[in-house]
Amino acid sequence: MTNLRTLFLSGSVALGTMMAQPGMATADVKNIVLVHGANVDGSTWREVYDRLIAQDFNVTITQLPLTSVADDIAAVRRNLDGQDGPVLLVGHSYGGVVISEAGTDPDVKGLVYVAAFQPDAGESGGALLASTSTEFTPDKLTVFDDGHYLVNEDAFLSLVSNGLSDDDAIFVARSQAMSHTAILAHEAQAAAWNDKPSWSAIATEDRTIAPELQRRMAERAGSTVVEIENGHMLPMTSPDEVAEVIAQAAEAVE
């Protein structure tokens, strides 16, 4: 895509020194809605939230029920209805599936994908995962009789939470939010990135959604790309870099 722009941000670079000080954000879009991934909750966004609030953005974090994609989209849309003015919609991991459909809302002016799926219409998260080989395979999940699942603790620690401290990794693994397998099988009904500007923060050390898959999805969407040297849980491992990408997107959209 002609508007693909690739930057490389090392996890060791202190981007916090580049960020605006409180009260200095000049973005036209001041409302940001953050959407978490599967098997976690909105608390994974806390460090990013703190940095965006310090720049005077109005930040809302959606808590997904993780029972179906339709239920999750409905939760995001309720938050969108509560905003006053245009919105930047941000999704981490599975949250990318949700924002791709919820982002068709006319108040959404742009989308940011953070180590996330960027499905086109007709694609599912599960099919995208299977399209590029990783160690994150179905045998790493425990599926219960009602269709809900958890990521096995050893797999969570080695494949999902690389880059987190040992204490944080264990806490997130043991506080997983039950997610339903239906969210992996759901075929997207729309892809808002076809009509709206998008950004993609790619986790170069991701062992869950392969970096090459993230790059491929971002390229076909014409997303502005930032590569961040860390694992899948970028909102927790690299909050400075992620917040900077979001702030830049908010300043760029109209």
Rank of each mutant, 00 (worst) to 15 (best):
T2R: 14
L4Y: 10
S12A: 14
S12T: 14
L15S: 11
G16M: 09
T17I: 09
T17L: 11
M18W: 10
A20N: 04
A20Q: 03
Q21T: 13
P22Y: 03
G23D: 00
M24R: 01
A25Y: 00
T26P: 00
T26E: 00
D28K: 05
K30A: 01
K30G: 02
K30I: 02
V35S: 00
A38F: 00
A38G: 12
N39D: 05
V40F: 01
D41I: 05
G42E: 05
T44M: 09
R46H: 13
R46S: 15
V48M: 02
Y49G: 08
Y49N: 10
Y49D: 07
Y49K: 12
L52D: 00
A54D: 00
F57V: 02
T60V: 14
I61D: 01
T62E: 05
L64R: 03
L64V: 07
L64A: 03
L66P: 01
V69M: 07
A70N: 11
A70T: 13
D71R: 15
D72M: 06
I73M: 07
V76A: 09
R77E: 11
R78P: 10
L80E: 04
D81N: 15
G82H: 09
G82L: 09
G85M: 05
V87T: 03
L89S: 05
V90C: 04
H92Q: 07
G95S: 07
G95H: 02
G95N: 03
V98T: 05
V98I: 15
S100Y: 01
T104R: 06
D107S: 15
D107E: 11
Y113T: 09
F117G: 01
Q118V: 15
P119R: 02
P119W: 00
E123H: 02
E123S: 03
S124V: 04
G126I: 02
G126A: 09
L128K: 00
L129D: 02
A130D: 12
T132E: 08
T132I: 13
S133I: 11
E135F: 10
E135K: 14
L141Q: 03
L141M: 07
F144N: 08
D145A: 15
D146A: 13
H148S: 06
Y149G: 04
L150P: 08
E153K: 15
F156A: 15
L159H: 04
V160Q: 11
S165L: 11
D167H: 14
D168H: 14
A169T: 13
A173Q: 12
A173K: 13
L184P: 01
L184S: 07
A185K: 14
H186C: 06
A188I: 01
A188F: 02
A192K: 01
A192C: 12
W193C: 05
P197Q: 08
W199R: 01
D206N: 14
T208Q: 07
T208L: 08
E212K: 14
E212M: 13
R215C: 10
R216K: 14
R216T: 13
M217V: 11
M217K: 06
E219C: 13
T224L: 12
E227Q: 13
I228F: 01
T237F: 08
S238T: 11
P239F: 10
P239E: 11
D240P: 06
E241V: 06
E241P: 07
V242L: 09
A243D: 04
V245G: 03
A250R: 00
E251A: 15
A252G: 07
V253K: 03
E254P: 15
